[in-house]
Amino acid sequence: MCNQKAFVVIALAVVVVATGCGRNKKPVVAAPQPAPTLAPAETTPPAPPQRVEESVPVPQPRLSEDAIANRSLDDLNRNSPLKPIFFLLDSAELDETGRAVATADADVLKKYSTWAITIEGHCDERGTPEYNLALGERRASAVKTYLASLGVSGERMKTVSYGKEYPFDMGHTEEAWSKNRRGHLVITSK
């Protein structure tokens, strides 16, 4: 508190001194320049006027795929090109919709072949914290197995279960639960 006050006083003093100095200074007067001498008359015709031209920017090439490749990991995971695979209650099997989403994810992963991912298994809040660790692990494992069957190398994929931690939707309805039973793909390196 005392230090802050002292600082303010000193700062004000500096300002006063600085502005005071400015006021006392005499205006700077530029030294008079010698009058320009006239060029001697030329006999040759003048050169044509020099063209003044501004360079026009060329439109950048479109970055459809590179827009993804250039994004940071944080940004990628915030709005991921890899979509979550949702599961039915108590199930660790990919249904038709889940397989279609996983196939699209596999295409992305094959395109960006340097990416490594962690597949997180998540559950809704209705199971116990303990059993859900196993169920989440089985969901993650099922997604990994399916992606591997589509040609994504197993070495690029890790599995983790979070049980019922970290739901997408904090609600307590079937709609919320259905969003929380998922395999969530997190990109861990590019």
Binding site: L73, D74, N77, R78, E165, Y166, V186, I187, T188
Partner: peptide
């Protein structure tokens, strides 16, 4: 981490 809003326990 790279996924937001995850609570420490």
């Amino acid at each position: 981490g790279t996924v937001e809003n995850r609570e420490v326990k």
